[in-house]
Nucleic acid binder design. Structure first.
Lengths: 87, 87, 87, 87
DNA sequence: CACTGGAAAATGCCGC
DNA sequence: GCGGCATTTTCCAGTG
């Protein structure tokens, strides 16, 4: 070992620091996972109430956009669908 | 529509329910995003302290596995790498 | 090892087989990557001709669906957007 | 309509161009899908011959890296795993 | 400002 | 048939 200190073991400082980082990240990831599960539950509840989960997700994405972007997206999509005879 | 009340519009009940689901999901997604940002910050801090972020992520994934799976994975990987002359 | 021949090393049979599998997969992945690049190029060409790449991708997905699914998706989306005042 | 020509319909030029782009992309995507299926088949064959598919995928990724990156990755991972007592 | 790499989301697949 | 997992795809940030 590269030093003479008593202590818990080799490279203990960096090792402890590494472990601390791992634990902080793991804790946060656990929280994130819990929220992701909550989101899934809400989708399930919505589906259970007769809503279409896939469409629900789409409209939430549309709500997140600013109005101009959303209007452009919708009108261009419409235009292309007509040109292709999809509508 | 199922009632005769004056009101904000047709299908207001289902519309309100839909809006409520959207808002619950949006709120949770906001929380999730905040935690994801925290995770990124911790990674940055670790990198700032000299750790390799990519490797850190890998070892966190290994820590999440149960011991048997991890040992099997590591030893099999080693075996294949030797067979291929990668090591 | 299962024979007495001099040779490149231990476990050469399994090692050769492993290497062969790797090479077959790598070859196919290379082909796949080349086609993915071609697809990107076509999108770029379309954008260069004034089309909106994102919308183009959306309508291609719609074309891939069968008519009933597509009609249901479009009408439900419309319904939800109206209910939310997005349209 | 902005012209008086007989013809298949409004905006037929852009519409035809759009359709042509769609068809080119769809054709390429079909090819890509076929190759992806081939890759899956090879993995299945490898697994049928006793190899571990997940590990196989990992070593293929390692083979794709250049030697210096790979060596650094492997040694750093080892270092961290020891520091964390995973090995 | 295009481009690469990496994170997040969406889709599809498989086992239960 | 459905939930969980893996792959794929999409998005975004960092970088040259």
């Amino acid at each position: 070992m590269s030093n003479d200190e008593p202590g818990p073991g080799h490279n203990s400082v960096a090792g402890d620091q590494l472990k601390a980082f791992c634990e902080r990240i793991e804790r946060l990831e656990e929280e994130k996972r819990a929220i992701a599960d909550d989101i899934k539950d809400v989708y399930k509840e919505a589906v259970g109430n007769g809503f279409d989960g896939k469409v629900l997700k789409k409209v939430i994405a549309l709500r997140a956009m600013d109005k101009d972007d959303r209007d452009h997206l919708l009108s261009t999509t419409d235009l292309y669908m007509h040109a292709l005879g999809l509508i």
